[in-house]
Nucleic acid binder design. Sequence first.
DNA 1: ACCTGAACACCGTTCAAGT
DNA 2: ACCTGAACACCGTTCAAGT
Lengths: 225, 225
Amino acid sequence: MAESGARRSERRREPLSRERIVEAAIELLDAEGEGGLTFRALARRLSTGPGAIYWHVTGRDELLGAATDAVVTDTMTAVVTAGATPQEAVRALALGVFDAIDAHPWIGTQLARAPAQTPLLRVFEHLGRQVEALGVPHAAQFTAASTLLNYVLGVGGQNAANARDHQPGTTREEFLAGVSAAWANLDSEEYAFTRNVAEQLRDHDDREEFVAGIDLILAGITARS
Amino acid sequence: MAESGARRSERRREPLSRERIVEAAIELLDAEGEGGLTFRALARRLSTGPGAIYWHVTGRDELLGAATDAVVTDTMTAVVTAGATPQEAVRALALGVFDAIDAHPWIGTQLARAPAQTPLLRVFEHLGRQVEALGVPHAAQFTAASTLLNYVLGVGGQNAANARDHQPGTTREEFLAGVSAAWANLDSEEYAFTRNVAEQLRDHDDREEFVAGIDLILAGITARS
DNA sequence: ACCTGAACACCGTTCAAGT
DNA sequence: ACCTGAACACCGTTCAAGT
């Protein structure tokens, strides 16, 4: 990764392609966030004009979708579920999405935007297979799989938003401590519950908390079959 | 549209206020979607210039947040939970948010964007109180409440996206039938599970399906305490 | 204190013109 | 077939000038 910088200027004469455009878009999104994906910035990175990109891609939305699909596909195929129990496999898949959003926060926002689209379907399919393996009766499989998916999407959206608002200077601990402190100072009548659990927020690890939610849903799924 | 124009001009001399701006923003968002909220369009509706709005509101993001907060607060206080079992109350609260997103799809997108913000905290607080009433031990309350919240957010995001992509001409049944048919035609190896549950999608009612997920999580919560 | 609206610095997207 | 880049039609936001 270090020496690629020197080579970068040589890239300019490689012909444009959908693949290269998507790749460059991902780099831009990772580096600058969703607001950084501009046709002008992308064109500069590809040493061309903004209009050229439209020959390969219909517009910004499609490009964002293609970038999300590329990352999610990689993520899903990278998760190894062979030899695991269905519960372990569900955890692994969910954590795969969680970590992918951690690495590319813009995915979290994007996944919530394109329902019934390919990236989402991929996650749904993989989760669903494990639901099947859990022995959930056919009639209950759809609900089980989509509950898991929607939970993953909810957390993903929150994490994406957190990453966006996050001051780059502060660590995750500092951030959590700040939220925890803010909660502890809420009005004690209007926010009695939130105040009471504020202290639990400080010590919780995001990933562990996320898996705890998955386990809760898994318990609900298996409690009924 | 023809005769309302005559009355509309009488509004022009009411003084501007944060309240009126938020109210007009909600009307615009409901009528035109998230893309319709423009400072120019808003100014026109308020018979003023775009600059005037900035005296009462710091910018577009704050305005969107204030509009979301207004709707969510109304929603949460409108839900009656007195005399209900905790399970029923959780269902009622969740459905309140669900229906609010149905009526104002832009909220679904917005809720996912502002973590640890007031509107979200309101929902979290109300859900959390019912979790407490369920008898969940203190150490498990945070996980239970946030799992419910994240599920609600996930579904809300999906519904908001569906409403945005939705052709205004098609009914929900036609829409579901279309998705169901598309799923049934997916590659039978790559999407074996999704194909298998495609037929369940056609007949499912969105609201019922949503509640089924809530019940699944509730089952998980109570299975452990 | 509050409002006005022109102006600034951006966008995504289109399209005539090139190769 | 593919690329170029100026131009179009928008944005959010600012700010000097008004009342």
